[in-house]
Design a protein around this nucleic acid. Structure first.
Length: 803
RNA sequence: GCGGGAGUGGCGGAAUUGGCAGACGCGCUAGACUUAGGAUCUAGUGUCUUUGACGUGGGGGUUCAAAUCCUCUCUCCCGCACCA
């Protein structure tokens, strides 16, 4: 027997697969299709991380298995290559970002290939390829034409160190997701995408897809839909009224004051009526200086100032109530103003207590002097005029209708989701394909002039003024208006990194198409993606964005399905051996290349699947890697114990049928760790018997192949099994043969196992009782005792209760 | 604070219509083979006061039988977080 040398056999089989085009998709559209998708990587300069192969191997396993089962499988790979790190590297080393990208892609591709994934490399896409971003720009133009893209002057999240604007989703606890630095507010004219218009559908259609629960919950939370009413509070002595949003219109009679956000426009409008403008201004300044972090800090005292000189009127009690400003009311949510019901809202209660404002109980059940009483269901209304005596949920219904009839308010749905800030002031991104003409306004670049190519610039450095480096390219910026032919200027902002990844799964379907995103027939065959696996960190970013774009493409008839992905799962992160996140500075980074070189790709794959629950974070263990290598060594030695024979070895038959079932199911349910454990167990069984037939080996190799494709192909060849392993079909199991005929039945006395007897699976209680009597240790526990009760579960357990 | 998930050997983790707790792997112990190697093989490995008892974060309960169900409680992780 030769030595097991992974480096030799892995290269050999990777070449054979490539040469024979083993993994290419089939043109035969009558076959059932399976579209497996993993998130395409950002090709960074650091190269592949051991975290990458985990999800890739998982879906590679499923893809390989499905091919054996006769599916037409699409399992593509590409590059999400626009982005800041590349641009920064380019600036630092004075190399064109295009060149940096090319190098990084080459490195990533070589690394991925060495692990033996069955990707459809003939369908590789790259978001920085003009033939690709042409269509990213095309989609943007379609959105612009439908009014979903608009330019808007607004304060955005600005990262001073990256010199870039950020979407809300990119800000984590007030800090830049990328560099960790503090994010400040900066007013800028930005391109926005109206994702809010799709908010309802993005929530509702989650019912039609199979995503793991935490993803659905997180998206629902992020979109933050709440149903309520917009109610008008008239400002005393003025024509205006102050609009508030509330989900508890039933508590309206308990609204004893109002609070508006510090930035509320009302203040400026009535500055002449306000008596304490100095105080107000002082508070506004104080509020604006607070960072987002301070604003959201826990257990802080409520602050605020009463606006003297203007008051509002409670529309149901007709009483005049004061208006305050406070930073606990946000301008960015609802109307920027609230009605305060201190008796039944914790925040209002705290505020009222601090500033000694009246608290009026309107829902019975608590002690509103001690704390706010919250009951959104069946509490009974008091002190509440027309809704007195009703339960909360009925009161909401009645008062809402009444307010609408009186023209005092209307039903309204509010969302936390904001429109998507889509401009970036950077070089390495898709140019926004619009020009500005003084006469015609914003005009899209005609389709036949797409793509708007990124121009060659001298300098990619971002500017402190917040303008894109492209703004300095006067020749490029100056253009003519496609509409009137007059002078015009190009938009110099570029798109965010999330643009290219919002639709890439469509391009894989027909990556070389020059006339459309992809052929409609091909799209209809392959879409939706059957299984998409990715990281939890993309739940409210890429995953949400791409669902939004897909829905838009559905609306304009490009695709025929409402949702892009039928199923979404998420993998856990791989941490360093010290249980900390892998990073250069911690010095705990594992390079997958080193594992491949030292132990082989099959070991890396097996280990990453065996390491633990796929959905949970796990820490790396070098010893664990060695254990998997040892397992594969034992698999390798199976060649020594193979004997001819086209039937399963008699004693192994049940085990083999069982494992076919187990592995088939486990590969589909992300339980790779238990599938591998079962394969190890069967191997131990093989070795204890000492010889196996070719039939035993054949099934074993096919089952293991998706995890460890190289070694299994090689062993298949060595054992001279028919043809090549990758052409084999997935084994079937026989439900009858899974059931053990003979079992070791545990015998319990008073619930404790006192012995075991070997019985036929369908033996009756009487037979088992007789056998149990032959067992000394069982009899010993029965001696001198009286049998009170016997529980017998056929084929499982026999419990004797004694006194 | 609200919502969700999880607590099992020295470690990663198995076992969920209630039915043998600790599969599989790591680590560890002993032995074999070896001019010592992080190789391979064999046996063992939950704990203890070991003819037995105890044991799935802790307390209580249901049951012939509980890691699994109920109840109280502690701890950790994740998500949201002044969202009206």
């Amino acid at each position: 027997m030769r030595e097991y040398k992974p480096n030799e056999i892995e290269k050999k089989w990777q070449d054979i697969w490539e040469e024979k085009k083993v993994f290419e998709t089939d043109d035969d559209k009558s076959k059932p299709k399976f579209y497996a998708l993993v998130e395409f990587p950002y090709p960074s300069g650091q190269g592949l991380h051991v975290g990458h192969p985990r999800p890739y191997t998982a879906l590679d396993i499923v893809s390989r298995k499905r091919r054996f089962q006769g599916y037409n499988v699409l399992f593509p790979m590409g590059w999400d290559a626009f982005g800041l790190p590349t641009e920064n590297f380019a600036i630092q080393h004075k190399i064109h970002p295009r060149e940096v990208t090319k190098r990084n892609v080459a490195m990533f591709k070589q690394q991925l290939k060495s692990i033996g994934f069955s990707f459809n490399w003939d369908r590789e896409v790259n978001t920085t390829d003009p033939n690709y971003y042409k269509w990213t720009q095309w989609i943007f133009i379609k959105m612009f034409e439908k009014g979903l893209a608009y330019k808007h002057e607004m304060p955005i999240n600005w990262c001073p160190s990256c010199k870039i604007g950020l979407a809300n989703e990119e800000v984590v606890a007030g800090n830049c997701e990328r560099c960790g630095g503090e994010v400040i507010r900066k007013v800028k004219n930005q391109w926005m995408l109206k994702i809010t218009e799709y908010a309802d559908r993005l929530i509702n259609d989650l019912d039609t897809v199979d995503y793991i629960d935490r993803i659905k919950t997180q998206q629902i939370n992020w979109i933050g839909r709440s149903e309520g009413m917009e109610v008008n509070f008239k400002i005393s002595g003025k024509e205006d009224s102050l609009k508030v949003f509330t989900t508890r219109p039933d508590t309206l009679y308990g609204a004893t004051y109002m609070v508006i956000a510090a930035e509320h426009p009302l203040i400026d409008k009535y500055k002449d009526d306000i008596e304490n403008m100095d105080q107000i201004k002082e508070y506004q300044e104080y509020a604006s200086k607070k960072s987002d972090f301070e604003r959201t800090e826990l257990s802080k005292e409520k602050t605020g100032v009463e606006i003297k000189g203007i008051r509002a009127m409670n529309p149901v009690t007709k009483k005049e109530i004061p208006i305050w400003i406070s930073d606990y009311v946000l301008m960015s949510y609802g109307t920027g103003a609230i009605m305060a019901v201190p008796a039944h809202d914790t925040r209002d209660w705290e505020f009222a207590k601090k500033f000694d404002l009246p608290i009026v109980e309107v829902v019975k059940g608590g002690d509103v002097e001690k704390e706010a009483y919250i009951d959104t269901e069946s509490g009974v209304l008091v002190n509440s005029g027309i809704i007195n005596g009703l339960e909360v949920k009925d009161a909401i219904e009645k008062i809402s209708n009444w307010l609408e009839e009186q023209g005092l308010g209307h039903k309204k749905t509010n969302y936390k989701l904001r429109d998507w800030v889509f401009s970036r002031q950077r070089y390495w991104g898709e140019p926004i394909p619009l020009v500005y003409c003084d006469k015609c306004g914003w005009v899209p670049v005609p389709e036949d002039e797409l793509p708007v190519m990124l121009p060659e610039v001298e300098n990619y450095e971002p500017t402190d003024t917040g303008e894109s480096p492209l703004a300095n390219m006067t020749d490029w910026v100056k253009t003519t208006c496609p509409k009137c032919g007059g002078g015009a200027k190009r938009e110099t902002d570029t798109m965010p990194q999330w643009a290219g990844s919002s639709w890439y799964f469509l391009r894989y379907i027909d990556p070389h198409n020059n006339s459309e995103i992809a052929d409609k027939e091909e799209l209809d065959y392959w879409m939706p993606v059957d299984w998409y696996n990715g990281g939890m960190e993309h739940t409210t970013l890429h995953l949400l964005y791409s669902r939004f774009w897909h829905k838009f493409l559905y609306d304009i008839g490009v695709v025929s399905c409402r949702e892009p992905y039928s199923k979404r799962t998420a993998h856990g992160m791989i941490l360093g051996e010290n249980n900390e996140k892998m990073s250069k500075s911690r010095g705990n980074v594992i390079n997958p290349d080193d594992i491949v070189n030292e132990y082989g790709a099959d070991t890396l794959r097996t280990y990453e699947m065996f390491i633990g629950d796929f959905e949970k974070g796990v820490s790396w263990s070098d010893n664990g890697v060695r254990g998997c290598r040892r397992y594969l060594e034992r698999v390798w030695r199976l060649q020594d114990i193979v004997v001819p024979g086209e039937k399963y070895t008699k004693e192994l038959e049940t085990s083999i049928h069982k494992i076919i079932k187990k592995v088939t199911e486990d590969y589909e349910t992300l339980k790779f760790n238990t599938a591998i454990a079962a394969l190890m167990e069967l191997l131990n069984e093989f070795n204890s018997i000492g010889k196996i037939t070719k039939a035993d080996l054949r099934t074993y190799l096919i089952l293991l192949n998706p995890v460890a494709p190289h070694i299994t192909e090689e062993l298949w060849e060595i054992a001279e099994l028919d043809g090549m392993l990758h052409d084999a079909t997935w084994p079937k199991y026989d439900e009858d043969k899974i059931q053990d005929k003979v079992i070791e039945m545990p015998i319990q006395i008073n619930g404790k196992v006192r012995g075991k007897v070997t019985v036929k699976v369908d033996d009756t209680q009487d037979i088992v009782r007789e056998k149990a009597k032959e067992d000394e240790s069982i009899m010993k526990h029965l001696e001198g005792k009286q049998v009170v009760k016997e529980i017998f579960v056929a084929g499982r357990i026999y419990n004797i209760v004694v006194k």
